[in-house]
Each structure stands twice: as C-alpha cells, then as structure tokens.
Design a protein around this nucleic acid. Sequence first.
DNA 1: GTTTGCTGCTAAATCGATTTACTTCGCGGA
DNA 2: TCCGCGAAGTAAATCGATTTAGCAGCAAAC
Lengths: 334, 334
Amino acid sequence: MKALAEHLGLSTATISLVINRSPGAKSIPHVTQERIWAAARKFKYRPNLMARSLRQKRSFTIGVMVPEISEGYSSMVLSGVEDHLFQEGYFYFVVSHRHRKDLIEEYPHLLRQRAAEGIIAVDTVYSGSCEIPAVSISGHRHVKGVTNIVLDHNLGAHIALEHLHRLGHRRIALIKGQDFSSDTETRWQAILSVAQELGIIIDQKLTAQLDSDSPSPEVGHRVTRKLLETDPRFTALFAFNDISAMGAIKALRETGRRVPEDVSVIGWDDIQGAAFHNPSLTTVRQPLRQMGVVAAETLLKRITAPAREYPREIVLEPELVVRESTAPMKQPSA
Amino acid sequence: MKALAEHLGLSTATISLVINRSPGAKSIPHVTQERIWAAARKFKYRPNLMARSLRQKRSFTIGVMVPEISEGYSSMVLSGVEDHLFQEGYFYFVVSHRHRKDLIEEYPHLLRQRAAEGIIAVDTVYSGSCEIPAVSISGHRHVKGVTNIVLDHNLGAHIALEHLHRLGHRRIALIKGQDFSSDTETRWQAILSVAQELGIIIDQKLTAQLDSDSPSPEVGHRVTRKLLETDPRFTALFAFNDISAMGAIKALRETGRRVPEDVSVIGWDDIQGAAFHNPSLTTVRQPLRQMGVVAAETLLKRITAPAREYPREIVLEPELVVRESTAPMKQPSA
DNA sequence: GTTTGCTGCTAAATCGATTTACTTCGCGGA
DNA sequence: TCCGCGAAGTAAATCGATTTAGCAGCAAAC
C-alpha cells in the first residue's frame, strides 16, 4: 500500500478511502479514484486483512466446533454452514473436540482470541456462557447468549413410532444414543412419551445404548448382538441414528434374520448413505444442511445487528422417509 | 495488556518479554516474572493474536481447500489434517470450491490474504503457482512450489485387478471417475496398463464414466444401469470409488443380479460405510487419514524450515481389503 | 476586502502487540 | 574519585492498515 501511495504521489489515507468506498471518498474526484483503482489492479494490491481487522475489530471469521470431522452428521451440517458463510464473505475455523471436556471448555476462548466474531457449535454440550454470539445446533442446554437450533424430537419420535405401530409392530427394540451426544436425552424422553401415548411398551430388556465414541456402525452392531442374546423377541428396531441402524442390520443378518421381513429397522438422520444401503433405510430425516444454513444466518444476523434480543430457540421439523427397511409385521401364523 | 502494565507498574515491553519467554527476559528477576504471570492469570490475559501476527508475520493458520465438505473422502483426509495441525497448535480455514474453476483460482489468494502460512489442497486440480508453501493431496499435476501426496495407483490397480483375475473374472466392467477428480486420469492409465499386463481386455462397451458432481451413489447407480442396458455380459465391476460401487450394487440388484454371486463388485477408498454395506465391500483402501497427517506434517516442516529443497512427491501405498462383494466367477455351466 | 464554503487531500493517532536500542542505578575495582 | 559493567527495565519504532481532524487553495457571497 505504501508502494502504491508513493507510485501515485498520494497518501495512504486517500487510497484507503477510495479502496474501501468509504463515505469520505465522495470528495475525491472521479479521475483520481480511477487512477487508484488502476494502480491497485496493476500491482495486484491486496490489503493485509490482519491489519484491517486489528483496526476495525471485524475479522469476518467464524469458529465452528464439531465433535468429529469424519462423521456424516457434522459434515452435512458443516456443508450448510459453509454455504451461507461463503455467500456472505466470511471464513471459518473448524475445530473438533472429540467430546473432550477440556477442549469444549477451551475452544471458545481460543477462537475468540483468534478474532472469531461468533461461534457455531454442532452437537456439543457446552455450559458456561460465551462472550461472543453463539449458535448451537442440537445443543439443548439453555445457555445465556446462545441460540439453540433444534429438531422437534417429539414429532420425530411420533412419526417413527406411529409408522411402526401402523405396520403392526408392538415389540420394538430401541437403541439409545451415547451419553455425550446432545440429542440423546431429549430424543429418549420424546420416545418414552410417544410410546406411552401409542400404547407401546418400552421393555428394559429391549433397549440398548451406544457406548463408544466411535462414529462407525460397529457400535450399533455390537449392542444389537447383545440385544439379540438377551431377548430376541422383537419385530422392529428403532435405532438412534442411521449409522447404528446399519450396524444393527448387519447384526440381524448375521444371526439369520432378514430385514425387513423378520425385523423392521428404522434409523434417524437420513445421512447420504441411507438411501443406498441394502436394504435402503426407512428413517427420520433431519434437515441437516438446512440446520447449518439457519445457524449461519442466525449467527450473522446477531453479529451484524447486535440486539439485546435474540432468538433463544429455533425448531425445525423432521420428516419420515419410508424406504425398504420397514415392512408390516409378519403374521404370527406364517 | 496495557491494563496489566498499569496494574503492575511495569511497561508493556517487559510484560511482552516475560509472557513470550523471549531471550531478553533472562535479565528480569524471577520475582518480577512471577508477579507478571500471577497478574496475567488473575486478569485472564489473552494476547490479541491479530496484533501479534501483524508484527511477527506468523499466524499459525493454514488454509485447506476441499472440493466438498459433505463427502467421505475429504472428510477423512481433513480429519487427519486436523489431528496433526491441532497437535502443533495451528488452526485452519476450510474452503470448498465445488470444482468451480474461478474459486480454485481465487482461494489461494484469499487464504494468503487471511495470513494463512500454507495451503493444503485435497483432490483439487490446481495450476498456477502459489506464493506460500502448498501441499496437494492427489493433485497429480506437478506445480512449482507444491508437494504432491499421491497414492500408488499402479499398485492399487494391480491388486484389484489381480484379485478379480484370480477369481476367474475376465469380462470386467469399469467405472471411470469424473473428469474433475484429480485421481481419474492417473488411475485410469494405471488400470489400462495393468489390464494389459494381466491379459484382461478393456471393452469400450463395458466402461462407463461418472458424470455428475454429486457425491451421492446415485451417479454410480445411473451409469451402471446404462451399462447394463448396453452390454450386461460382465461378471465383475471395478468402480471408481466406494460410493459409486454402492450405487452400482443397487443397480445390479434392481435388475435381478446378485452380488457377489452373479457379479463381483470392487470399490476404491474404503470409506467408513464400506465395511457395513450389504454386502460389505471389497475395496482398495487408501490411507486417507494418514494422507492428511502426512500432508500436514510436510507442510509444517516446509513452513518452519524454509529450504530451497522440498519433496516434490510422496507416494503412499494402497491395500486390498477383501470382503463380501467379490467371489469366484460362477461356473458357466451352473 | 473579508468571510464563508467547498474541494481535494494529508498528517497523525490508533488498533495491540513485538522488538531493538537505550537508560538508569548501584557496585566493585583501579 | 572515577570508570566500567551488569542488572532491571523502558522508550520508541514497527507491523499495515483505518479514521478523524484539519489544512491549503480557490471561488462565490456579502
């Protein structure tokens, strides 16, 4: 920039005014402005954004916290986030905390230190408030200063269980999520309440819980095998998510059961692979990309128009996607 | 920091020396140092990293370019990259270019402008050199200043085709990758050369090419159906990647073929879902996470020790993972 | 003839650190 | 007494921009 100024015989102040189209530039005649633009193009001038940020205290940077990058859920959400942030000219840092408490605690500070103007937390249980605007996706805890974007789990549980109920299933096995997943408890309560409403009995012996933080179907596979050893007399299985549903299907097949002829399986999420699994998965679709987009929109709105008021919660609706993995219950006589 | 200085009755210079443990701090007595640390802790002092970067011209930030976030390949690589960068205290920006030429061209500049000290490009064909150190994963084009991390595609093609060949397959259908994927051409040439070596005939009518930039199995599904219409007389199919292999399997099943009894299918990548697909996929495993780690290591090495010399290419080896989707060719008599 | 106002620009402060080149003080030795 | 030296720290420049206050020059108004 100094080089530019020298070359043009102008001061850096003038150049700055013009380049930024700031109101002060209206007193600069058009010819001078053109000279500046031409020179800027010629020398490929690119302002140092660090210096600019330092002065303006705007960095156009967001921090995104996810549990894990390789996993389908976060990736889809990230993709929505990225879409919107990119449109608005923001960049973002990604950090993954692998469910480590200390990192979850520390990252918001680190991000702020790196001049992030806001934080989006995906599937992360965070407590302790935050000095910068934050939006949490499936955060569930109400934390001061944080907008929660959540799914209507009651609706989700309802459409899933009703679907199974209509198909005639009464003995339904359930796979609960890992304790660290922020959706687990909410969804579980929703399922219990809907089950009662529909007259479906929740049997302790028919429920299992994912227990490892691996994002692989292996976990669902393992717990389903255990389930089958304990009490195999169920005709349908409602998994915590599609990943575990896939593991469950493998376990069922390995023990000689056909899906959906012998056991119907329903998942949750509708990840990329769900439609192409064999059998393709009936599942409760979360609008993951949209959740990402909404999160980004909400956050940017809060950043650009800092208001005392901000939405505490935004609820999105799931949708039942019926595919091949569920079928009417076999007639007992058959 | 100024507040700290005032509170301690010291100058900001002294504090800076101590906080950064710089050599100049050796003349500051231990008691004073302790006083400074104590005060820093008490006031939770966190230096403004923008200011520091501006001065030191180090940002501890890397830019990572991927085609798409939601996709398995990039996610796995990213996960490896993240692992190593995190260990070394670096943060990173993620940008996804969706194969848009203009973005691929522009992003390196934008990243540099944002003070990224290096760039990692994943599965991105980039030409035009770069002013900062760069590492490309599966980049294949030799570009000045860029280290390429690539898979040994010859070895990959070899173990895959040999596997099918040993199982008795001679008529093998091939699905080639999208033109924009940087691996496509290299892998294709490797396949052609290995096929010749093994005496496998590549039939134009038995080859298809992925044509959409969607990361869904749908694309593989579509081209396989077309393949089946043209000439269904193949006993094995070698897909460009696991995603398209999954689509292909679906297409085969829809047209009444069993996998692997009627047609063997082999994929490439070994993504998360491959082991839990039904049937589980035989595939050529790429060490994706490791590629990410190696990329990060190499880049940081180049950043911290800028040498005239840097590796132009690092080759990693694939590995055949045999699962259920391949089987010996049916006896013609059967 | 002076004031007023506008045009076109610049000097200098600022953002929050790092870093270099001193200064000041006390003390031991010549 | 005076010099030199190490200890303990500081003043000021710097990084690369933005931004505010204001200056010079000229024309029109009074």
